[in-house]
Design a protein around this nucleic acid. Structure first.
Lengths: 127, 127
DNA sequence: GTAACTGCAAAATATTTGCATCCTT
DNA sequence: AAGGATGCAAATATTTTGCAGTTAC
């Protein structure tokens, strides 16, 4: 259960930086494209997985099955249950974290650990 | 915009039947396994896509990116916005449509067309 | 007969794994 | 030097596409 200690590398810092500079949730591909130097895509995935385990980022799975990552700091939630709305635009494909939260009800007999609230439509920029 | 007329085939009926007989949302693989005769997986996907366009089924994308289909009749919604909760169990992997609905707020400037509300945890059977 | 449906093989997409190498601590 | 981080190639998994053959109406 003890987490291994992570190291301070340029590539991890770059991933964190592009995520902090971008206002929408990014796919691994988006992140790779936004980084000035070349980082192998396997590395991107491994960095994101590590970040997710540590609670630095969370991700929503889009309707298409692709994962979109966002810094947890950006949405002001530090715990696993991100009960804010994620909006996926059918036009520009952008996935954004919305300020609106939904109250997740108690499901009798179920243990709730995570939430992915995705709303799909046309965003304010494309409308 | 005019929808082409669909035909009455055994395989489409079988897919509809297993979906109606199963109380959880099924992946294409699940459906294939539940059907007594052999249906090609491409055919399953095409049937599901057609059903979705007609509004016969809806699907949720699980955390892993897999699509899980359920008959819209089962959840009592005929329109596109399925604002009921889908629960994905980390243990048994089952995805179920829950009776609880969440009120989706108006997002100023956004046009809402669909919703996928996914909650992840341990279901009542596995707990 | 025509258009919808199906099957098979192959392609496309997204993510993971194995293994060798490199680099932080 | 030990073990975390990275790169490359290959594997996995899910879904889609092209095309030829079949079937419902």
């Amino acid at each position: 259960m003890e987490s291994k200690k992570s190291r301070n590398t340029e590539k991890q810092n770059l991933v964190k930086r592009v995520l902090s500079e971008t206002k929408y949730a990014m796919s691994a591909e988006d992140i790779m494209a936004a980084i000035p130097i070349k980082i192998n895509k396997t590395t991107i995935y491994r960095i994101l997985n590590r970040f997710e385990e540590k609670g630095t980022v969370h991700f929503v799975t889009g309707k298409n099955g692709k994962a979109y990552y966002a810094l947890c700091d950006n949405c002001g939630t530090s715990h696993k249950i991100h009960n804010h709305i994620h909006f996926e635009c059918k036009e520009c494909k952008e996935v954004t974290c919305q300020p609106n939260t939904l109250q997740i009800p108690n499901l009798e007999g179920f243990m709730i650990q995570e939430a992915q609230l995705l709303i799909i439509g046309i965003c304010n920029k494309c409308k």
